[in-house]
Computed example of a mutant assay.
Amino acid sequence: MMTVVYVDSVFILNGVMDYLLLLVTARLAGIQLRRRRYLLAALAGAAYAVAVFLPGMGFLSAPPVKAAAGVLMALIAYGGETRLARLTLLLFALSCALAGSVLALGLLAGGSVPVTRGVFYTDVDARVLLAAATAAYGLVRVVFRAAARSGVEGRLVPVRIAIDGKTAELTALWDSGNTLRDPVDGQPVLVVAPGSLRGILPEAAARLCTPEALGAPAELLAPLAQAAPELAPRLAPYRAVGVRGGLLVTVRSEWTQIGAQCHPGLRLALSPTVLGDGYAALWGGEVRMGGRHEHQNTAGTSCQVAGPAAG
């Protein structure tokens, strides 16, 4: 029997699924979210899904070509990230988890999920797709949180940072062993990995804050203060296991939301090297989760706060 495939349905369905997969991968990996790049990568994936059905293009459904298409999507979405290989593997794992969940839930619901040449098409029940995506995301999130707790007795918390009127979203490891404090006011400092603030630092500051320059913080301080005085840069001493210790350059954010708590003017330490296991940030202060209400800061931008302290 001839299979009828509507290319618009193929394009929209696979584009939406690819975008969600790319976004979830980034959130779980804790990198700064770059939604436009994820959208571009998802459009490329959707175009590939359509091309599979074109006359004479059946070879595109071969496993090596599928793998190459997945790698291309990862390069478009995550190119330039420090852990590109890990992100690519995580994307592939999530893709398998979501596909398996969709098929399983479709069978449990007493129906069938239309798949041809390994590509979903036409009448996939939206409720089945949503339930599968939620289940796959929840499972992977639980696994990753458990790994974080067992590895360094911490957990992952969402972070939003505002600098220069722009915001970045990333994931931080909440590590009770991180005792870094600002020497002036004694407040906790959020340590951020190289590249985590790319896109929200003032342009002049971003040019200066290369990993090489951050490795010599005392020499970087004066040029950074001159180029971006609004960041109020200063130095913070640190000590780490197996390391003699040293200095980190810190800058002031407009506000930083960690979990459900807002920290106006929180200082951020710019690490010259990647953090353990590729985390985007490390936090050792209090974390509040749960209920939320809006807090309006002096810059006029909102930051979500409230809720009891997490145990």
Rank of each mutant, 00 (worst) to 15 (best):
V71A: 11
T25R: 02
R36V: 08
A68I: 11
G56E: 15
F11N: 08
L72H: 05
P63T: 11
V52T: 14
A69I: 05
M57Q: 11
L40W: 02
A62R: 12
L60G: 07
A51S: 14
F11L: 14
V65M: 13
L39E: 02
L54D: 08
D18C: 11
L75Y: 11
Y48F: 15
A44N: 01
G56C: 13
L28E: 07
P64T: 10
A26E: 05
G70H: 02
A77V: 01
L43Q: 03
V71S: 07
A26V: 08
R34H: 07
K66D: 05
Y78C: 02
A74V: 01
G30M: 06
L22E: 04
A42I: 00
V24F: 15
L60Y: 12
A26K: 01
P64C: 07
G15T: 05
A51E: 04
F11G: 05
V24P: 00
L28K: 02
L21E: 02
Y48R: 01
S9T: 07
R34M: 10
Q32W: 03
V65Y: 04
A68V: 09
L23A: 14
G56I: 12
L72C: 06
L43P: 00
G58P: 10
A49L: 03
L13C: 14
V52H: 01
L13Q: 07
A77I: 00
Y38L: 09
L23C: 08
S9W: 10
K66C: 08
V24S: 11
R35M: 06
A49C: 15
R35I: 11
A69M: 09
L21T: 10
L43E: 05
L75H: 05
R37G: 03
G30K: 01
A67V: 15
L22I: 08
V16A: 15
S9N: 15
V5D: 10
V52L: 10
Y48I: 03
Y38K: 00
L75A: 08
V5M: 13
R35H: 10
A46V: 02
G45E: 01
M2F: 11
L43R: 00
L33T: 09
M57N: 13
V71M: 06
V50M: 13
L33Y: 04
K66F: 09
R34F: 03
M73I: 07
V5W: 12
S61Y: 10
V65H: 02
A42D: 00
L72Q: 03
P55N: 09
A67L: 15
R37I: 07
T3Y: 14
D8V: 11
T3W: 12
V71N: 05
Y6W: 12
G45Y: 00
Y48L: 04
R37S: 04
N14H: 12
M57W: 15
G58D: 13
A69Y: 03
I31N: 01
V65I: 09
L20V: 08
